[in-house]
Amino acid sequence: MAPSHYLILASILFTIGAVGVLVRRNAIVLFMCVELMLNAANLALVTFSRINGDLNGQIMAFFVMVVAAAEVVVGLAIIMSIFRSRRSASVDDANLLKY
């Protein structure tokens, strides 16, 4: 498998995530889509790094992992608090803020 295939995979994953955020309605699913996008970016970083034998990309991936984890923690906290006060994780149910 040529390395460029990984790039294509990364783009596909990213696109899935990006589209998922736009079409799905459950906060948790949205959140997972975002994580998917982050990991797609990681894959792209590592692949670029691999193709050109440059280590920087892999180091970046490390940092991204940390950031993603921090995001998970914060995001879960927020989604949980909204879930506990509404009993629903659907984004559509959260509709108090409108024009």
Binding site: V21, L30, A94, N95
Partner: peptide, 14 residues
């Protein structure tokens, strides 16, 4: 407020 935070978070992470 929570709703705002969730929106901000989801879109921000996006």
């Amino acid at each position: 407020s929570q709703e705002a935070a969730m929106k901000y978070f989801l879109l921000g992470a996006y």
